[in-house]
Design a protein around this nucleic acid. Structure first.
Length: 460
RNA sequence: GGCCCCAUCGUCUAGCGGUCUAGGAUCCCGCCCUUUCACGGCGGUUACAGGGGUUCAAAUCCCCUUGGGGUCACCA
């Protein structure tokens, strides 16, 4: 059985890169009928926060990635880790090191002065004497001194590490007794039965250390998939300054969860020329072995395009619901289907969509000056006025198009003589959906009122 | 700096020795549709980082250079 895990450290919100690895983990586990576990790496007591862990769960919920089982919090497992540290101590595979931080710093300075790689010199590796007073020891693992560690990565292929220039006896427990990252990751992955570790390739150089730990315990080494980073549009590492990288910001900006998932799955992975993937299709085709080896840049335009695509696809009911958080409730609007249909194909985000809806359902409070300059003349005003009068005399029983064209014919005018001015009266700008649709959604009564309003505003 | 990873249009990518005068998508630019803006349709500009090999044949394999990125903690 395939067991994957997503193991963020709760130092902030869930960002888009994290979501992508989570998605990959999720997809692979689900596809294989396995399990997708969630573990919060909060061993650094000073930096973790409950809010951050909650934020991750919230983001998962929004995009619909469900993890299996209980969330594992590493901060609850210190006692467990201690027993494993002790085991290594008992077996002589780890030892106490009494070197002080100051001594370590000096050593490192000397080494870099000699242009050597800073590394622990192993001075307590075989120490049997009396330990110095007043120093709480750290626990270091006995790492191999020479040889190669070969990692078979599902994405990068075979990666060779020369132990001599890669490893030293690294710390597995701090002087306060708390275990360090590489140790707990390995213990947890092994204990949780993780078979496939899918994570960012910034962890690639940690892997040899973890392999040392797997070997010390005789744990089975899982498959590794180190997925390349997501870069910002300038090709640098993606950071907060590059706009919305908090997953929940995408909701606030009017993106759909399926947009984000589809966008992310295609960033670094592909299935021929296919661009649009439903969750079912992702599950059908995704394979971490075919993730790209190179980093990919975040591309907002493609995200917008995808979002526009999904806005055109989803149900009217859902769209109506999605609009509510943006302050627009059209659930009781008599013509909501028509309203949604005429606007959905021009909105790239729900946020934009809401603005457009607002423009239709509420009479304009102001009029775009440039548009007024350009489209309103004494002739068009007269025509508008006559049109309003015609509506007033008898509310049309036929459609807006039929009525309007008949009106225009009787006046010997063309649609383009009336439409721009009418549009300004309806929405306040020179841009809107097809004018007849707008008219019908607004309704003839309100159409009259809006014309009246424009005309009287223009008089002032 | 040491170690590691990476390198096809601006971007996401297809390609896994011949079917490549390199395909799709996005962006951009035209044209069509049209009452405006979009949508849609059609068309166009744009890429194998450079240099050496291997081979009858290389975007595809190897090496070097260059360029990017990651990592080197009693952080995760």
């Amino acid at each position: 059985m395939v067991i994957t895990r997503f193991a963020p450290s709760p130092t902030g919100y869930l960002h888009i890169g994290g979501l992508r690895t989570a998605l990959y983990c999720y997809l692979w586990a689900r596809k294989c009928g396995g399990k997708f576990l969630l573990r919060i790496e909060d061993t650094d007591l000073a930096r973790n926060s409950k809010e951050a862990a909650d934020a991750i769960v919230e983001a998962f919920k929004w995009v619909g990635l469900a993890h299996d089982g209980e969330i594992v919090y590493q901060s609850n497992r210190f006692e467990l880790y201690k027993t494993y540290v002790q085991q290594l101590l008992d077996e002589g595979k780890a030892y106490k090191c009494y070197m002080s931080k100051e001594e370590l710093d000096t050593l490192r300075e000397e080494q870099s002065a000699r242009k050597e790689r800073p590394r622990y010199d192993g001075r307590y590796r075989d120490f049997t004497g009396t330990p110095p007073h007043g120093v709480e020891p750290v626990i270091r693992i006995k790492a191999p001194l020479e040889g190669m560690i070969v990692l078979h990565d599902g994405i990068k292929g075979e990666v060779h590490f020369n132990v001599a220039d890669m490893l030293d006896d690294f710390i597995i427990a701090r002087s306060d007794g708390t275990p360090t990252y590489n140790f707990v990751v390995t213990i947890d992955d092994a204990l949780m039965g993780v078979t496939d570790v899918i994570r960012g390739d910034d962890h690639l150089s940690n892997t040899p250390k973890q392999i040392v730990i797997y070997n010390a315990f005789d744990f089975a080494i899982p498959k590794f998939f180190h997925v390349p980073m997501i870069l910002n549009p300038d090709g640098k590492k993606l950071s907060k300054r590059d706009g919305a990288t908090d997953v929940m910001d995408y909701e606030k900006e009017g993106f759909l969860p399926e947009t984000l998932l589809n966008f992310l799955v295609r960033l670094g992975w592909s299935h021929g020329d296919q661009e649009i993937f439903s969750m079912e299709e992702m599950l059908e085709w995704f394979d971490p072995n075919s993730i790209n080896k190179s980093a990919s840049a975040y591309n907002q335009e493609k995200l917008l395009w995808l979002n526009a695509h999904y806005i055109k696809e989803i149900s009217i009911e859902r769209l109506v619901e999605l609009l509510k958080p943006f302050g627009v409730d059209i659930s009781l609007h008599g013509n909501k289907e028509r309203l949604v249909e005429m606007l959905r194909e021009r909105a790239k985000t729900i946020k934009e969509f809401a603005v457009m809806v607002q423009q239709i359902i509420e009479a304009p409070n102001s009029y775009d000056e440039v548009a007024v300059q350009k489209c309103i003349t004494s002739e068009t005003k007269a025509l508008l006025s006559a049109y309003q009068e015609a509506l007033h005399v008898s509310t049309p029983t036929q459609g807006a198009e039929v009525f309007t064209k008949a009106f225009l014919e009787s006046k010997g005018a063309k649609l383009k003589d009336l439409a721009p001015a009418l549009r300004i009266a309806m929405v306040g700008t020179a841009v809107s959906p097809a004018i007849f649709d707008v008219l019908e959604v607004i309704g003839f009564n309100d159409v009259q009122e809006r014309i009246q309003k424009l005309l009287s505003t223009l008089k002032e």
